[in-house]
C-alpha cells in the first residue's frame, strides 16, 4: 500500500507539470490581456508599455512560464494583478469557502442520492422506483443556476426567510457557526446538491438492482439470513461503485461551481475564477486553476485508497 501510494504521488508530478503548461498556454491564448483590463481604456501607449514592464508581460512567454513555474514550486503563486494581494492566500481562502459549501452539498446530495437509489433499486419496477427515478432525472436535467434563482425568488424574495447572497452578515472573514451565517449556506448547498442527488441515485439504483439479482443474494436468503443482514451484504457490494461516483462528484463539487457561486455571490473558487476571467487577472487564473487541478489529482488518489480499503478484492500491487 505504501509503495502504491508513493508511486501514485510520483505520478502526480508529471501530471501537475503538464497541467501547469496547459493552464499557462490556455490562459495566454484567450483574447485580451491583463494590462488592457487594469489600465483605463484610454491609457496612452507609453503607460501600457510601462505597465507591461512593471508586471513582467514584456518578456517572451517561455520566460514568463519558467519564472511562474519557478515561483509556483515554492508555493508562491504570485500576486493578483487586480488586487495586489497574494494569489495563494486568496485561492486558499476561496478553496476553504468552496469546501464548506461543497461538503454541505455533498452531504445532502450523497445522503439523498444513495438513500433514494437504494430504495429505487430494492423496489425495482414499483411506484417508489418510478418516483425516485423521476427525481433523479429532474435533478440531472434542471439547470441548477435556474433552480438557484427560483429558490432565491421563493425563499428570499417572496417568503423572506433566507438570505439571497453572500456568506454572512460580515462576509467570510468573520464566519461563525451561528444562524446568522449558516442560513447563507442553505440555498446554495441545496442548489448544488441537485446534480449529485440525480447521479448518485441512478448509480446506486442500478448497482443495487444488479447485486440483488446475483446468485449469492439468493444463497444468503436460502441460508435463512434476515432481510436486514442480506441488505448489509448488498450495501457492501454496492459501495465501491457508488463511492467511485461519489468521489468524482465530490471532485466536481470541490472544483467550485462558477454559476452557483456567481448566482449566490458565494466567495469560493468558482466566483474567484469568474472574477479573474473578466478582469483578465492572469496570475489569479493560473493559480486557481492549478490548485483545483492538483486537488483533482489528490482526490483521485484518495478515492482509490478508500476503494481499496472497503473492497478487499481490489488489490494494489
Amino acid at each position: 500500500m505504501i509503495s502504491y501510494l508513493i508511486r501514485r504521488l510520483l505520478y502526480s508530478v508529471p501530471i501537475a507539470l503538464g497541467v501547469s503548461l496547459m493552464i499557462f498556454m490556455l490562459v495566454h491564448l484567450a483574447p485580451g490581456d491583463p494590462i488592457s483590463a487594469i489600465a483605463p481604456a484610454d491609457a496612452p501607449p507609453d503607460v501600457i508599455e510601462r505597465l507591461k514592464v512593471d508586471y513582467g508581460y514584456d518578456k517572451p512567454l517561455p520566460v514568463q512560464f519558467a519564472l511562474w513555474l519557478g515561483r509556483a514550486v515554492t508555493g508562491d503563486l504570485g500576486r493578483s494583478v487586480a488586487t495586489g494581494q497574494s494569489v495563494s492566500g486568496e485561492v486558499m481562502s476561496a478553496v476553504g469557502n468552496t469546501i464548506m459549501l461543497s461538503l454541505c452539498a455533498a452531504l445532502v446530495g450523497f445522503t439523498l442520492g444513495a438513500g433514494l437509489g437504494f430504495v429505487a433499486g430494492y423496489n425495482q419496477g414499483r411506484l417508489l422506483d418510478k418516483a425516485a427515478t423521476a427525481i433523479a432525472i429532474a435533478g440531472i436535467s434542471v439547470p441548477h443556476y435556474w433552480l438557484g434563482m427560483v429558490l432565491v425568488i421563493v425563499f428570499s424574495v417572496q417568503m423572506n426567510v433566507l438570505p439571497a447572497v453572500g456568506m454572512g452578515p460580515g462576509g467570510s472573514s468573520d464566519w461563525a457557526w451561528d444562524w446568522a451565517h449558516m442560513q447563507h449556506l442553505i440555498l446554495p448547498a441545496i442548489t448544488l446538491a441537485v446534480i449529485p442527488i440525480g447521479i448518485v441515485m441512478r448509480t446506486t439504483r442500478s448497482a443495487v438492482a444488479e447485486i440483488l439479482n446475483q446468485e449469492f443474494v439468493q444463497a444468503l436468503r436460502a441460508k435463512g439470513l434476515s432481510e436486514r443482514h442480506v441488505l448489509g451484504h448488498v450495501v457492501r457490494n454496492v459501495a465501491p461503485t457508488v463511492l467511485a461516483v461519489m468521489g468524482l462528484q465530490l471532485g466536481y463539487l470541490l472544483g467550485g461551481s462558477i454559476l452557483i457561486e456567481t448566482v449566490f455571490s458565494w466567495p469560493g473558487t468558482g466566483f474567484l475564477l469568474n472574477t479573474a476571467i473578466f478582469r483578465r487577472d492572469i496570475p489569479m487564473l493560473q493559480g486557481t486553476i492549478l490548485v483545483l487541478a492538483l486537488f483533482f489529482v489528490f482526490l483521485n488518489v484518495v478515492v482509490d485508497l478508500i476503494q481499496t480499503a472497503v473492497d478487499p478484492r481490489i488489490k494494489r500491487a
Binding site: 469546501i99 454541505c104 452531504l107 425563499f155 426567510v161 442553505i186 448547498a189
Partner: peptide, 14 residues
C-alpha cells in the same frame, strides 16, 4: 459543515 445540512428544514422556518 457536516451538521449544517441536517438543519436545513429548521432553517427554513427562521
Amino acid at each position: 459543515a457536516a451538521s449544517i445540512s441536517l438543519s436545513v428544514s429548521a432553517a427554513l422556518m427562521a
